[in-house]
Computed example of a mutant assay.
Amino acid sequence: MPTVFSHPAPMLALAAIMGGRVSSRMLLFGVLCAVLPDADVIGFRFGISYADAFGHRGFSHSLAFALLMGCVGFGTAPLLLRGSRLMGFFIGFLAVSSHILLDAMTNGGLGVAAFWPFDQTRYFCGWRPIRVSPFGLKALLSERGLAVMLSELRWIWAPCLAVIAAALSFRKKGIRGTRRRPPSR
């Protein structure tokens, strides 16, 4: 899995693309949905094994869970998230889906149960450039943790920051390009 620091990056890029149409509350919801699937590691403390359907990268890393979080966004958008129901669904679903994709692009673990409950198979992408993150803060602060962070900078943050920069640049040019000069007389 990528670290908790990198899972929000696609949501930040999406918010930049969408400009002012995403409220800060909606963005926060997206960031929370992007990191929420990894809360499944709590199951280790209760004896749930990694490979179990409710273990790490199981149910919470499925499109069914992405749909569930989309429905949460749909239901809470007008009251809590300050946005449309469709936007709430879109943000919740895409945030979890981006988490699934990033985890499937790592070079370790058991893969993601993307099609749970219909298929218990754990899947990876054919291209897996992201180094899998170790569990625990001590391991993250090791040499291996540094290699993971550098991998995430290259394969997650750099593309997302490029999208953010492009979105901001286009928006700035678009604003300049739409100004009208007063008619000359």
Rank of each mutant, 00 (worst) to 15 (best):
L67H: 05
H56E: 11
H56Q: 12
M18W: 14
V72S: 02
L36G: 04
G92F: 02
V4I: 06
H61S: 02
F115A: 01
A77H: 05
R25P: 05
L32A: 15
R179C: 14
L153Y: 13
H7L: 04
T3H: 08
F5V: 01
L14D: 00
M87R: 07
S62N: 01
I156C: 11
R179S: 13
A39Q: 10
A39K: 08
R21A: 07
W127G: 07
L28D: 07
F124Q: 02
L101A: 12
T76N: 04
A51N: 13
R181Q: 09
Q120P: 08
T3K: 10
S133I: 06
I130R: 06
P134W: 14
A147R: 15
H99F: 11
G177V: 05
K173G: 12
A167T: 10
D103T: 03
C125S: 14
L137S: 14
A13Y: 00
G47F: 09
P78T: 02
G30I: 04
R128H: 12
W155S: 01
I42K: 09
V163K: 05
P37F: 06
G43L: 05
H61A: 03
S142A: 10
F29Q: 06
L150D: 04
A162V: 07
M1W: 03
L102W: 05
G55Y: 05
A77Y: 01
V132T: 14
M149L: 07
A16W: 09
R185P: 15
A166S: 11
M105I: 01
F44G: 06
I156D: 02
R85W: 07
G47D: 06
P159S: 12
F115W: 06
V41L: 13
T106P: 00
V35G: 10
A51T: 12
A64C: 10
F115V: 01
S142G: 11
R180M: 13
A77W: 03
L28N: 06
R185A: 12
S151D: 02
L137F: 15
L146R: 15
S97Q: 11
A64E: 04
F115T: 01
W157A: 04
I42C: 13
S97A: 11
A77N: 07
C71V: 13
G108P: 09
T3M: 09
G43D: 05
K173M: 09
R131T: 03
L150S: 06
M11H: 00
P78L: 05
R179D: 13
A162D: 11
S24G: 12
M26L: 14
R25C: 08
E152K: 02
A13H: 03
M69N: 04
A77E: 04
D38Y: 03
R85L: 04
L67K: 03
S6A: 08
M105R: 07
S169I: 07
S142Q: 12
L79W: 15
R180K: 14
S133V: 11
T76L: 15
L141V: 10
I175M: 14
I164C: 14
P37Y: 09
P182M: 10
S60C: 13
G58D: 08
V22M: 08
R144K: 15
S142F: 14
L32I: 10
F89Y: 10
Y50H: 14
L80D: 01
G47M: 07
L28A: 11
V163G: 03
R21M: 08
L168W: 15
V96G: 06
S133P: 11
A34W: 02
